[in-house]
């Protein structure tokens, strides 16, 4: 066998794509060809290294989204209790995964419980067919809705011009306290912004952390503690923070 042929067969040999006869022929040719022996070693090594990379399974959130679409298309009556349980299981496993893997995020160091509550709240929004309790992109509809339901007036701003249309609002519980959650969209991604009155004075610049395709923003601005969770890139989360801060400032 001449070398170009031998060379062309190295990959197929490593990949188990040669017939028994071809393999035998290749092995014989190999003895006479040091270049192809080196090539064989290199191919085996590259293959081994790639196969050694850790598996990267589909995130639970993706699985849940696909499941939701399938259920919606199948047009089945929704089996509420079971489905609810499954979401809770998904949420729980995500929280465990996020909680354990979270490094460098100020949220965890501050309060793991708070992060858990925010993540669970986010999942309720992202996976629900009714993500908000008041659905409107008009702040003059959303803001008054909170009156009488909560003991402060949260910052409600439509950020459509910055690419984050307001979807609406809802209530949630974080650390045993009722809080206002404003829900935004970025293309097909959701952002849940939780706001409550700050106890310390002054603004604190946002820290944005990423994990498993989620971005978390944590900052203080205009007298509010602000936490944003979304399944989007950290850069998008930073734009969201900037857009919100600007809107809050222009309102003062």
């Amino acid at each position: 066998m001449d070398c170009p042929t031998c060379e062309a067969m190295v990959g197929a040999y490593v990949d188990g794509e040669l017939s028994v006869a071809e393999s035998a022929e290749f092995e014989r040719a190999l003895e006479a060809c040091p270049d192809c022996r080196r090539r064989l070693e290199e191919t085996r090594m590259v293959s081994g290294l790639l196969r050694d990379l850790p598996a990267d399974p589909a995130p639970d959130l993706l699985r849940a989204k696909v499941e939701r679409e399938l259920r919606a298309i199948a047009g089945r009556p929704r089996p509420y209790p079971r489905q609810h349980l499954r979401w809770m299981a998904t949420a729980a496993s995500l929280i465990v995964a996020l909680g354990i893997g979270w490094t460098g995020a100020t949220l965890v160091s501050q309060s793991g419980r708070e992060t858990d509550a925010l993540m669970a709240g986010y999942l309720r929004i992202a996976m629900s067919d009714h993500p908000v309790e008041v659905a409107s992109s008009d702040r003059h509809t959303v803001k008054p809705w909170f009156a009488g339901r909560i003991d402060y007036a949260p910052p409600v701003h439509d950020l459509t011009t910055a690419g984050f249309p307001l979807v609406g609002g809802r209530l949630d519980i974080v650390d045993g306290r009722k809080v206002a959650v404003m829900v935004y969209r970025r293309n097909r991604h959701w952002i849940a912004l939780t706001a409550w009155p700050a106890t310390s004075a002054g603004d604190a610049a946002a820290s944005v952390a990423q994990r498993d395709g989620f971005a978390l923003g944590d900052w203080r601005h205009g007298g509010f503690e602000l936490r944003a969770v979304g399944d989007l890139a950290p850069a998008d989360m930073k734009s969201f923070v900037t857009a919100l801060d600007r809107a809050v400032d222009s309102d003062r």
Binding site: A55, D56, A58, V66, E69, G213, D231, A233
Partner: peptide, 23 residues
């Protein structure tokens, strides 16, 4: 689905985009 996400992950090289593509 794992394979779909895994392939998308390497195509896009971005975990967020990969989820969009896979979905």
């Amino acid at each position: 689905l794992d394979a779909a996400y895994g392939y998308a992950r390497w195509l896009t090289r971005d975990p967020v985009q990969a989820q969009d593509v896979a979905q």
